[in-house]
Simulated assay, not measured.
Amino acid sequence: MRLGLTARGFGKCLAIGLLVLSTGTAAQSPSADEAKDERFDCMALAELETPETPRAWLERSLWANHCYTFQARAVRIGSDGVRSLALSHDVVEGVEREVARFLDGPPVVFERRGRIGRLSWSEDDSTPPASPAGVAEHLEGLYRLQLSGEERLANRNALRLDIEPLDGLRYGHRFWLDTATGLPLKQILLDEQGRVVETFQITQLHQPRLYQGSIDLDRHRPPPDDPWHPTWLPEGFMPKPVKTRSPRQGDDIGHRVYSDGLATLSLFVEPVTGTDQLIPGLHRLGVSHAAVRHRELGGQLRQVVVMGELPPGVLIRVADSVEWQDVASGDDTSP
C-alpha cells in the first residue's frame, strides 16, 4: 500500500524514526549535567591480535565503528534507486560525531553526536555492557555467523562475514570488513526469501586513523514508565536505552526503539485527532515498512505505527500486540 501523503503526523514520526534507525545502537548526545560513568580506550584495539572467529570479527568491527576517524564516499542501492553519499566520523573530547550527506537527489543530511550506547536499560542496580561488548554475544543465539573468504573493495582487502537469521522474523546481512581496521566496507541486506533489499558500499575510504584517546560510554538509564507496551516482540528484541523525545515530536506522541543488536524497529503511539492521520495498513518506506493501526487504548482511539527493516508480518504483529496499562492502578485497559 502506498503511503498517504497528507498525513503530517506521520511526517513527524518518519523524521524521528529515520534518525533513530540511522544511528542503530548508538547512544544519545550527552548533556552537561550527565555524569560520565565509563570510557573505552580506543588504543586497546591496536594491541589486539587479528580475529580468528566470526564473532571476534563482528565485535572488532563494532568497536572500530566507534574508534576510527575517517572520511569516505559511498553508494546506497535500494528500491528507491541509487544514491551517493559523503560520510565522516570523528571524535572530539571523547564524544563521537557522525555525518552522512546525500550527494544526489533531495538534500538530506543525518548527523549524530553521542557516546557509545548501552545494550539495555539499567534495572535493579544492573550494569548493562556497552553495546559492542554485549551485541556480539547476544547475536549468536539469533543468527548464524560465518566467514566466507576475502575480496578487494575500495582498493582495500576485505573479509566477508555472513550473518544469517535462525528464524524468519528478521533479515539477513552480509558484511565485508576491512582487514586492516575492521570497518565495514560493504553491507547487503537480505529479506526473508534471501532477496537483496539494499546494498551499501564504500567506494573511497580516506586515511582511517585510530582515535588516540578514550570515548565516553553512555550513562546508566532507568527504563521509562510508559502506560503502553508491546506484548509481543521477535525473540531477542530488547528496548533500547535511548532518548526518543525531540522538538520534532509533540508531547502526545510516545516513541520507543527496540532492537536485537542488528535489526531495529521504532514504535509510535499517539492520539487519533482530526482527519490528518495515516490510513491503517502497511506502507512502504524505501527499504523499510510501516505498519499502521488505529486502536482503542487507554479509553481513547490512538494511532500505532511500527516501522523498521523487518518482514512486514513482524511489524503488523507488533502493532497488534500493543496494550495499555493504567500506571496508577496497574489495570490493563486495552480491549
Results as ranks from 00 to 15, higher is better:
Thr203His: 04
Glu137Cys: 03
Glu323Gly: 04
Pro54Gly: 06
Phe200Cys: 02
Cys42Asn: 01
Leu153Gln: 01
Asp251Lys: 08
Glu296Gln: 14
Cys42His: 03
Thr275Ala: 09
His66Ala: 15
Pro280Tyr: 13
Asp276Gln: 09
Gly194His: 02
Gly168Cys: 11
Phe102Thr: 07
Glu49Ser: 13
Leu177Cys: 02
Glu309Gln: 13
Pro223Asp: 01
Leu87Gly: 15
Ser334Pro: 06
Ile116Phe: 00
Val327Ala: 13
Arg8Ala: 13
Ser266Tyr: 04
Ala74Met: 10
Leu301Met: 14
His138Pro: 12
Leu153Glu: 01
Arg113Asp: 01
Asp320Ser: 05
Asp37Val: 13
Ser259Gln: 10
Ser29Asp: 08
Ile16Arg: 14
Ser22Thr: 06
Arg156Pro: 05
Gln249Tyr: 08
Leu310Thr: 02
Gly299Met: 05
Ser84Lys: 10
Ala26Pro: 04
Gln300Ile: 08
His138Asp: 12
Leu233Pro: 11
Arg219Gly: 08
Arg284Phe: 04
Ala7Leu: 01
Pro30Gln: 02
Trp232Tyr: 09
Gly78Thr: 03
His229Leu: 05
Ala158Thr: 07
His229Cys: 03
Ala15Asn: 07
Ala7Asp: 15
Asp326Thr: 11
Arg97Thr: 11
Ser329Trp: 05
Ala136Leu: 12
Thr179Ile: 15
Ala74Pro: 14
Leu62Thr: 04
Asn155Thr: 04
Gly182Trp: 06
Ser31Phe: 04
Glu198Lys: 05
Val304Arg: 15
Gln249Glu: 08
Arg160Glu: 10
Thr199Leu: 11
Val269Asn: 09
Cys42Leu: 03
Thr273Asn: 04
Asp252Arg: 12
Trp63Arg: 09
Arg112Lys: 12
Leu45Thr: 08
Pro129Trp: 00
Leu153Asn: 02
Gly141Ala: 13
Ser29Gly: 04
Asp178Phe: 02
